[in-house]
Design a protein around this nucleic acid. Structure first.
Lengths: 111, 111
DNA sequence: CTATGTACATTGTTATGCTATGTATATAGT
DNA sequence: ACTATATACATAGCATAACAATGTACATAG
């Protein structure tokens, strides 16, 4: 029962958190979708479904946070690389502030 | 644009985070709904709508995380007090671990 | 030739925050 | 007496986002 609750809860925590993670990774440079999934797996041990990430990237693009460009490969399928826009970089900073405040609040509650 | 994005994003962050906050406050003792809204406002500066909290408490009750009891007041409307069940206390611990891990991951990404 | 990995994408389901609205009691201001 | 505000609980309908399932396509290892 507890495991099931945590499973559902952690899925809900991803709503919002996941975009923060993606944008934070993109602060480091350019990445393509499949690579982002691998990066997140390494950094967070979170499993991110493809059906979660690709729509998320499209939303971020539509909102002007990221931009993308197709890059042909000498072998294999072309990759769509994403990078932060100027607005995206400012969004990242605002997210940092919000997250820090939220964490500070939780520390206070836990005391 | 950035403000609007953060406004929508922070609403998404609440999904999951809010239940963590409520359960964390309830680790301190018994609270009733309206009081929880005030507690959260003080601890986190978050505005929690009544239409958000009451359904959340009902879900937590249905899932066996909290229990409630009506308490008549000498003056005014009776209050419904909530407290964690034994399962709820274990859920709280599991949430702490998950949250800590998530934060640690973000620190690594931000490095 | 089959399985696995790489790489992008969409559809339908489910869960949750939020606005709006409703009910009811108590108190302070004009 | 009337109005506004605060306290206290609750529901209906909307918007959003994660996820499983499914699909397409190329490449490589057994």
């Amino acid at each position: 029962m507890i495991e099931e609750f945590i499973a559902k809860w952690s899925s809900q925590v991803k709503k919002g958190t996941l975009s923060y993670i993606v944008i934070s990774v993109l602060e480091k440079g350019e990445f393509y979708g499949y690579d982002l999934i691998e990066q997140i797996k390494q950094y967070t041990k979170l499993e991110v479904a493809e059906g979660t990430l690709y729509p998320l990237l499209n939303r971020l693009k539509k909102q002007g946070v990221v931009e993308s460009k197709w890059v042909e490969q000498t072998s294999g399928i072309p990759r769509k690389y994403y990078h932060l826009t100027e607005d995206g970089k400012q969004v990242a900073k605002a997210m940092d502030l919000y997250w820090e405040e939220l964490n500070h609040s939780l520390v206070k509650i836990k005391q």
